[in-house]
Design a protein around this nucleic acid. Sequence first.
DNA 1: GTCTATATCCGGATAGAC
DNA 2: GTCTATCCGGATATAGAC
Lengths: 194, 194
Amino acid sequence: MRPARRDTRAEILSLAEQLFHARGYHGFSYQDIAQALGVKNAAIHYHFASKEDLGLALIGRLRELVRKNLELFRGNPIDPVAAIQAYFGYYRNHCAATHSICAVGMLAAELSTVPDAMRLQARALADEMRELLAAILEAGRARGVMQFAGEPAARALSLMCTMGGAAQVTRLKDSPEVLETVIAQVSRELGLAA
Amino acid sequence: MRPARRDTRAEILSLAEQLFHARGYHGFSYQDIAQALGVKNAAIHYHFASKEDLGLALIGRLRELVRKNLELFRGNPIDPVAAIQAYFGYYRNHCAATHSICAVGMLAAELSTVPDAMRLQARALADEMRELLAAILEAGRARGVMQFAGEPAARALSLMCTMGGAAQVTRLKDSPEVLETVIAQVSRELGLAA
DNA sequence: GTCTATATCCGGATAGAC
DNA sequence: GTCTATCCGGATATAGAC
């Protein structure tokens, strides 16, 4: 029942995540975080000895989130349409609204300039994301509320690429309309109601 | 009829383009180029006073290429299927083969850390790319060799996002199979022969 | 056109006091 | 847990000789 004492570590992680989505792993510095939090450079190093540690913690948290969603959906796969709308919602309310892009796309771009361990984490994140989408698509088709040709895993991969790309072009063009156009096109092809 | 004298400027540009696709605008330095070409740092600055100049020249060349292809296709739109196969071929033979990603995706990721002028160039590049794809898709549907719902411009945008994302995930997973899976899925949906 | 030399700045990281 | 102070390396960029 302690009063709302600052949890610096959590604040760092949260801010770093925003900065990462907006500017990439190499696009922010310990200085940026320190200044925003009103502490000094060295304080960040106390919580995350190296920037790589921070990067790993960051992706780890995202993986956790995806895994939790997968578990949730598998435990109660009654509404695949709502699940995919939530997926679209992420791009609307997170990416487009904050002019940022998704972590997989950012990490893919920075892949060759990022520590090895982060590369592995990024791969795992992409795998888990694909797994989640495949589960949703498979359930959707089985219940007759989605239509597509081919394997759910293949369609999930393609969808993931499309939406990741959509977030990027949306940001590039600074136009939420881009995202809406792609979502509308994809929805049409999956047989979802507009 | 001068002997094959080195055109340093062209070599710089060509090498910078490779480095950019592989590591991004911030991922390579004048040093990298200088060493690879066996000259000194300052020599690069002679040809491109600032890195921004180099970046602009680089994107400008890509735009030129896309524009040329658009002009070519518009002048002779008899084989849209070959045109789209060539588009897929770029991802196979350039991106996947060199473990790099396409410029639009790279620039979208680095967007907020790149000079203003480059942002504008990047937007124009994306627009022109979309225009080219829309022309191909429209011709393909008109000739009955491609099927899709909605406007060609919307389908073109979605396709561009899908393929850009596919290059990124292919690189992330270090797996050409990812690219082939996406191409196969897209081809199926467009009604192209496998 | 290319060189040497240098200026300037910035990012990550560490040591040791408080 | 946070501070001050400092080190190191790397990157862009410029001046002036050749």
